[in-house]
Amino acid sequence: MTLYLETPGGFVPWSGEAINDVRHPLTVEWVWSDDELAAIGLYLPAPADDVPPGKMAVATSVERVGGVVKFVNTLVNAPPPPLPSTPVIYAVGNFAVSDMDISGIDTAVNFSAAVWMDVGVYLVLFSEAQANTRYLAKAYSGTSQALVVEKGEDYLIINASNASGPYDPAEFSLEVIRVQ
């Protein structure tokens, strides 16, 4: 522990400098009593008070508080904790498939258009291009399997299949989740 010397300008760390023209060994810290140290202006400060919730210490000084020499923290309001990332459903849509065509689109939010490209292969366009492709896209199609096989900034490509291979379900649904 460091002893602090009381000066007209406040308390400063003491590293053996002469006090009143007398040099004392650093070992006085262990062999002198607190009263003997105080008699020549040396103090071992008491710990600072605990930092209360919502505050943070940005500096520490040594001060005399209520007659006790102690560390004193300079406190400021702590920054609020970061908000947790929240996944949000960005786009949804139901797409009807018949006769090698996307025959209808309903409940579409942020999807603008779709096209049948081949059996079990569909292209779906977003209403607006995305800033990047860091989104989760899920496809559903009842009893068949539907997978998003390609994610672009403005489109998705979906493959649908059943046990026999590529397959056109009567409809498929899409859900796109982004993290904000």
């Binding site: 849509g93 065509d101 996307i102 025959s103 209808g104 689109i105 309903d106 579409a108 999807f111 603008s112 258009a113 779709a114 096209v115 490209m117 292209l123 366009l125 209403s127 607006e128 291009a129 403005d154």
Partner: peptide, 19 residues
């Protein structure tokens, strides 16, 4: 070349500027 099925309610005049 595609024949897109468009979602109901979209403003085609605006959408064609995108596609």
């Amino acid at each position: 070349l595609v024949a897109l099925t468009t979602a109901p309610g979209i403003d085609l005049g605006a959408f064609v500027k995108v596609k």
